[in-house]
């Protein structure tokens, strides 16, 4: 085994162990509403709910992390994240619009439409718009994509504020909670199967294109010189990243920083080769999100539960600044 391969193998083993530890921690930890923290294996009902939380966190974490890897390769920008293309703001816009329609038309449906469907439709719809506007001479252009993504995100943000302004009081709080990201214990089996399948298939496609991504990150001329057609590759990466992000947002809301930090953490441990990086980033994403969920179980705030997005931002923000300052984020 060559030194690099050995490092990768050890790194992957290390990530698997971390994932295992976070999963065990999540299955054991429970703080009741009076603040008493327990670490124990409990009855099947509670365990089933904890398993659901683990699966939601794993699917969302892996999807966001793999999506981050794809977008960083596609945009050739190590600071790109899944939300740069507007998927999360599109999803949030669709959710707030559905909430507004429900409240104004006096429809009571699944408690204010915090359903996965509007989020998924909103995310995919926004990505479609970004795709159409981000083309140059018929092919996706990385710079145009980023610019269009930023503008579409800003427009969606303005519309979210507009609909948020119109929402009744109680729904405003619900929207804010959803936008901070939640690991739902009540996700249905069908939701888990659909989003889980998307995460698996998306990761498999990303693995398949691993070597092509390695070449694509070198630069347009270098990629073409080794016979790589960049146009179709960018299209595939965009579509796969978009669908993975949409699935994650639909399942757990727009959780920040996972898609940015997990690829960098994996790159730090495993190196820049995308075939290994995809697997490593997925594991890092899973560990980060389950770890954040464990933190939200442990840290008590007035007896209630903090949204998991608060913890990913608290972990991811400083980590991001560290990467930026130390230069380790550069692939």
């Amino acid at each position: 085994m060559r030194p690099l391969a050995k490092r990768q193998f050890l790194g992957l083993c290390c990530l698997v162990v971390i994932v295992g530890l976070t999963v065990i921690a999540r299955l054991l930890v429970y703080r009741d509403i009076s603040g008493v923290l327990t670490w124990e294996w409990t009855g099947s009902d509670a365990m089933s709910l904890r398993w659901t939380a683990v699966r939601v966190a794993a699917i969302a974490g892996a999807s966001l992390a793999v999506s981050g890897v794809l977008l960083q390769a596609l945009l050739r920008n190590p600071l790109a994240s899944p939300y740069i293309l507007g998927a999360s703001s599109g999803a949030a816009l669709a959710v707030v619009m559905v909430m507004y329609l429900q409240s104004s038309l006096a429809i009571t449906w699944n408690l204010r439409g915090m359903d996965t469907m509007p989020a998924a439709v909103g995310a995919v719809g926004t990505l479609g718009v970004v795709y159409l506007l981000g083309q140059k001479r018929g092919w996706l252009d990385p710079i145009s994509l980023v610019l269009v993504g930023v503008v579409v995100t800003a427009i969606c943000g303005a519309l979210i504020m507009f609909f948020h302004h119109l929402l009744p009081h109680g729904l405003k709080a619900d929207l804010v909670t959803w936008m901070m990201g939640i690991i739902r214990q009540g996700a249905s089996t069908s939701e888990l199967i659909i989003t889980g399948s998307i995460a698996l298939i998306g990761s498999a496609i990303a693995l398949f294109f691993g070597r092509a991504m390695d070449a694509a990150t070198l630069g347009d001329d270098e990629a073409r010189s080794i016979g790589l057609s960049l146009g179709p590759l960018r299209l595939v990466l965009f579509v796969v990243a978009g669908i993975l992000t949409s699935a994650a947002v639909a399942l757990a809301g727009p959780i920040g920083f996972v898609g940015l930090i997990a690829p960098h953490a994996a790159r730090l441990i495993l190196g820049p080769k995308h075939t290994v990086l995809v697997v490593g980033a997925a594991l890092a994403g899973i560990a980060l999100l389950i770890g954040a969920d464990v933190a939200s179980q442990i840290i008590s705030v007035q007896g209630g539960r903090m949204p998991v997005g608060v913890f990913t931002a608290l972990i991811g923000g400083p980590a991001f600044i560290w990467l930026l300052r130390s230069g380790r984020g550069r692939s």
Partner: peptide, 17 residues
């Protein structure tokens, strides 16, 4: 519930309650 004010709980909390 013993919590005060407007709070978020998990389904597991409700199961325990």
């Amino acid at each position: 519930t013993e919590v005060t004010g407007w709070q978020n709980l998990s389904l597991e909390d409700v199961s325990h309650l």
